[in-house]
Structures are given as C-alpha cells and as structure tokens.
Amino acid sequence: MSWIKRHLITFAAIAVLIYMLVPNVIVAAFSFNDPKGKYNYNFNEFSTAAWTNPCGAQGICESLGLSLQIGVIASLAATALGTMIAFALGRYRFRGRSATNLLIFMPMATPEVVMGSSLLTLFLMLGVPSGRTAILIAHIMFCVSFVVVAVKARVATLDPKLEEAAADLGANPTQTFMRVTLPLAAPGIAAGALLAFSLSFDDYIITNFNASPSSITFPMYVWGASARGVPVQVYVIGTVMFLLALIVVMTGQLISSRRNRQVA
C-alpha cells in the first residue's frame, strides 16, 4: 500500500499518458480495417488495402501535399520572422518593448475562430482572393508568436559573455553571429520551427475561413470526409505522420546525445 502511495504520481502520469495516446492507438488499429459501411467507426475485418494504396481515396494525397507544402513554407517564414523578434527581445533594450511583448502574446490569446474570421473580413475588403496565399499569410501570422516564445527561451539562457569572447578573439559581428550565436540558439530555433510546422499542418479553423474549393488542406479534407464517411487512407496517413514525428524527434535526440558521448 505504501509502495502504491509512494508512486502515486507515476501512476497518475502513466494514466494521463494513456489517455493522451489511446486515440493514436485506435487510429493505427483502424488503418488496418475494412469497414462495413461508409463510416470507419467499428472494426470489421483486418485489411492492408489502405496501406498498399494510400492515395486510393480521391483527392487525399493532393490535400496532404498542399498541407505539407503550406506547413514547410509557413514554418520557415514564421521561424525567420519569429527568430528575429526573439533576438531583439532577448538581446536588446529598446523603447516599445512591452508593447512588442503584448503584440506577440495577443495572437496566442485570441480564439482561432476570431483570427480566421477577422482575416476574412480584411481579405474581403482588400479583395484578396481566398486560397493558398491567404492560407499561407494566416498560418505565418499565428505561428510567429509560438516561434518567438520557443526561441526567446533559448536566447535568454545564452551567456552574452560568449559573444564578447568571440569579438575579443577577433570575430567580426557576422562571424560572431554565424559561429557562436546561431549554433547556440539552434535547438530553440529547431523547436520553434517544428512547433510552427505542427500548428500549420494541423490547423483547420483558421484555414477554413481562408480556403477556396481549389485549396483543400488535409485537415479540411478530413473534415469534409467526416460527414460522408472517412476513407481508411486518412487513418493510414495519420499513423504515418505520428510515427514520422516520433522518428524525427528521436533521431534528433539520439544524434545530440551521441555527439555528447563521442567526446566523453
């Protein structure tokens, strides 16, 4: 009994983790289903049909491609913009600092439905057509703040003495940035970029306000399909993305820990 009491937090943590992962397990399991009707809600019969033909459902791979494309462009742009803001906030004292902080915080404190709809009113007034460009603009906008937070956390831990040391040893400002500052901030920038990609890739609500019939992202495809029956391929892609994310992050961890061990 006391053993249970001592490990209470561990048990609670594991239970919560299971709660968080059960849907992924279900998604993986149902990717091997051969559903009876049009809804893939009940397990009928084991089948690898969807795995051997992941693009079998009409439009699914086009939407996936569009989502990946938007995700990459939006996360790169948001990472560039956000990293610059994070450096300004983390490295310089300047007037307008708290206003900047507020402006960075606001998009995170605004419901997506408000951001999506307000952007729609802007585009309506300016005559900007819905579609890929509109979606990109929106995604970059809501990703920037998250990148700023991730990079700023890292920049804050950097010792300014290291940059002074580089200058002292003859590195000009560009060399100092490329050889000292950037490599040291890289983990934060990578985390920010990954977060931005996942937010962009997964967004439905804001995208929906700015999409056109010719720009159906993957979440929009899933949403559309949920009404008329979700093809099993959606579950396949969901599982692959989950595993891919696990592999990417784990490899990153492995590389950095091996690099540390090598020199030991």
Partner: peptide, 29 residues
C-alpha cells in the same frame, strides 16, 4: 525526452482524426 516526445507527437496526427477516434472509443458498441 521520450515522454515529452509522446506528449507532443499526437499533434502530428491531425486532431480531427484523433477526435474522430473518440467517436469509436465512446461508441455504444
């Protein structure tokens, strides 16, 4: 790090799909 990754990784499976999975989990059958 492993646990942290497990917390973040579900993000990459579209939340719509995961929410649909709850329809299965909570279904009457």
């Amino acid at each position: 790090n492993l646990v942290l990754v497990l917390v973040i990784a579900p993000f990459f499976t579209s939340f719509l799909i995961r929410t649909l999975a709850w329809r299965t989990i909570l279904s009457d059958d």
